[in-house]
Write a protein that binds this DNA or RNA. Structure first.
Length: 666
DNA sequence: CTTGGATTCATTTTT
DNA sequence: TGAATCCAAG
């Protein structure tokens, strides 16, 4: 506590302005202690379903009641959806005042802060965010430029390169260490990879581009080097709450320290049993480090479970009991009622899908709404077969996690046109746009981008180039002229992004039909859907930022008649189901080789897989069905006999009933 | 130089 | 199964 911060308190701190919530009556003692915690650091260790959200919601409500201005509270959560859900519940308690609570993911918060204060370290407020695909494309481009061409024997491909570079930063390692540790087979390429990585870093810096990791690192750098800004941000957000703390990585932990530097008011909420993001650099040991970073931290443990019936918790406890690292928590249920989870063995995948679909229809007959049901799986492709089955039976669903439709080639193509308008220095998007024109390949596109980077009026320059080509009767001349016309039209257009996109689509859709003669109708629907999304935005920058940071996840397969979320079944990866709950949960593909996947071999990874199963199981409130097929298709081995996931082996029959499906004859 | 066909290859989870 | 890369024809 070096400097003192003078804080202007608005509102009356003694009178409770709200309706007067009777916290003691609504919360158990451990929860109450957490909610009533005032100043100073606190760590809340809360088991699954023990009311983590509840604690955060009530604490926010209480702080606001106490007179803390809502904008002084900062909620860092894992997804924006989680933040919105929490704020929705706070709103029910204290009304609309809570709308001004700051919050979001680390990345989106960093984005806002950097646009506001980044100039102090020479960052333009118009920086562009690179998503993973952009990162890979740029790396590829630089690799070609540097002559580290693909003829190189065993040089890693772009996705691997991106992975190495990103993970190294997320785990706060050097690239050399990362290669030696995780990619020993590329160790003799280390020097080239490092050179490429630094070229990548230089390129981003010179063009005002930030990838996901840069958002966090640059904010840390800003806070670290600039005490004045650090003080301002810290004074603005005097109460910080971090959800899912077990999944923060070292750089995020560092950010929290910096943000809390002047007031130390951090409440971290987490559960070491639910750490499932180590592949992103998270380490559950972070949670143990918390008291070291904040020496006077108060530690509060919450174990009582409000979500699930005891039968479901018994299974969760048994799964975790099999872990090599023992957890001290044992969940016990607050609710009364009995249900024993069922392990269902299906003959093959179609049967698994039929069982799930059929049971869902039965549940609906029993009065369970679709919105109260979820199907969870380890990897997003596991649900493909089920998606077809659901479509056949007209069961509407949303799919969370996995491939975003924003990442499909046609959406990225359309997007690239908008991006070159927003940021003419965006070389990757230029390449993409140019190569769509028939007659322009890698070489020509490069040459044009080179010329454009020296010009200050891109459409004008393109027009000139088109003229030049026409005189040589080059076949790309017409296409290039059309592009020039398009760009000058939407650039001058001060209209909303949706209108700009509409113009782009007029130009792009004919090109797309030629490129994808087989399935362009489906792609056109995607583009229309994207156009609808664009309607919500008033500025192009905001649209592009959200696309990178909060990509709309509705997948192509959605049966989207209505937009009302509550009548849709949820399909989700377990990772994306984090923090959510449903009345009835199905877990599919609970088979060896799928869950855990084949490639999780080392003990650390397997431990994480086990925690993942624990997370999946504890999403259920009332009913839980775990399904796996015994006939599995493997591309190498053909059909093989599948076994239930090892995490379900040896569970006593009282805890997990087993059943197998009979072939129905219809 | 561009493009299309042939061949190979590896195959999680996310901001 | 599909995407990435290689190769040869136009």
């Amino acid at each position: 506590m070096a400097d003192k911060v003078i804080i202007l308190r608005t509102g009356n701190s003694s009178a409770s302005a709200g309706t007067g919530i009777d916290y003691a009556a609504l919360l158990n003692p451990a929860q109450l202690e957490a909610v009533m915690h005032d100043e100073g650091p606190a760590l809340v260790i809360a088991g699954a379903g023990s009311g983590k959200t509840r604690i955060i919601v009530y604490r926010v409500a209480r702080l606001i009641e106490k007179g803390v201005p809502p904008q002084a509270i900062l909620m860092l959560t894992f997804t924006r959806r989680a933040a919105q859900e929490m704020l929705g519940r706070v709103e029910q308690l204290v009304g609309e005042r809570c709308r001004q609570v700051a919050g979001g993911t680390f990345h989106s918060f960093a984005n806002v802060m950097l646009r506001r204060y980044g100039q102090a370290i020479g960052l333009s407020p118009n920086f562009t965010i690179l998503d993973r695909g952009d990162m890979e494309d740029l790396i590829n481009l630089l690799r070609a430029q540097m002559g580290l061409a693909s003829s190189e024997h065993r040089f890693p491909k772009k996705s691997t390169l991106a992975e190495m570079i990103s993970i190294a930063r997320n785990k706060a390692r050097t690239l050399e260490e990362e290669i030696a540790l995780e990619y020993p087979h590329f160790i003799d390429q280390t020097e080239k990879i490092v050179r490429l990585a630094s070229a990548y870093a230089d390129y981003k810096r010179s063009r005002g581009l930030l990838d996901y990791d840069d958002l966090l690192y640059t904010l840390a750098e800003l806070l670290h080097n600039n005490a004045e800004i650090r003080r301002r941000i810290s004074a603005l957000h005097r109460y910080i709450m971090v959800d899912e703390y077990q999944d923060t990585n070292p750089i995020q932990a560092e950010l929290i320290s910096l943000l809390a530097d002047y007031h130390q008011n951090v409440m971290a909420v987490g559960d070491d049993g639910q750490s499932i993001y180590s592949f992103r650099g998270a380490d559950f040991r972070n949670i143990l480090e918390f008291p070291k970073r904040f020496p006077n931290a108060r530690i509060i443990k919450v174990e009582e479970n409000y979500r699930s019936l005891q039968g479901i918790l018994d299974l969760a406890n048994e799964i975790l009991a099999g872990a090599s690292r023992k957890y001290t928590k044992t969940l016990f249920a607050h609710r009364v009622g009995q249900f024993t989870p069922i392990l269902v063995r299906a003959q093959d995948e179609p049967m698994q899908s039929r069982f799930v679909a059929q049971r869902i229809l039965e549940l609906r007959e029993e009065g369970v709404e679709l919105g109260e049901i979820a199907v969870l799986f380890r990897s997003s492709f596991h649900s493909f077969d089920l998606e077809l089955e659901l479509q056949r039976r007209n069961i509407p669903f949303v799919k969370r996690g996995g491939f975003k439709f924003i990442e499909t080639a046609h959406i990225k193509d359309a997007l690239a046109h908008l991006r070159v308008v927003a940021n003419p220095a965006d070389m990757v998007s230029w390449m993409r746009v140019l190569k769509l024109i028939p007659g322009i390949g890698d070489r020509k596109a490069h040459a044009i981008v080179e010329t454009l980077s020296k010009a200050n009026d891109a459409p004008q320059e393109l027009k000139a180039l088109a003229e030049l080509m026409r005189s040589k009767s080059h076949k790309a001349a017409d296409g290039l002229a059309r592009l020039a016309a398009l760009l000058s039209e939407i650039r001058s257009d001060r209209a909303r992004p949706a209108d700009q996109l509409a113009v782009v689509l007029q130009y792009y859709v004919p090109l797309m039909r030629d490129e994808y003669p087989d399935d362009y109708p489906k792609r056109e629907r995607d583009l229309e859907h994207f156009h609808e999304i664009a309607q919500r935005y008033r500025s192009l920058e905001a649209l592009l930022t959200d696309v990178a940071l909060e990509p709309p996840s509705d997948s192509v397969g959605d049966v989207l008649a209505t937009d009302s979320d509550d009548e849709l079944l949820t399909l989700s990866t377990i990772h994306s189901a984090k923090g959510l709950e449903w009345k009835v949960v199905f877990i599919i593909w609970a088979a060896e080789g799928r869950f855990p996947p084949l490639q999780s071999i080392d003990p650390e990874q397997l431990e994480e897989e086990r925690r993942l199963m624990y997370v999946a199981v504890t999403r259920a409130r009332d009913e839980l069905y775990i399904v796996y097929p015994i006939r599995m298709f493997d591309r190498v081995l053909g059909y093989t006999l599948g076994q239930a996931s090892r995490f379900l082996e040896g569970i006593s029959p009282q805890t997990l009933m087993t059943a197998s499906l009979e072939e129905e004859s219809t």
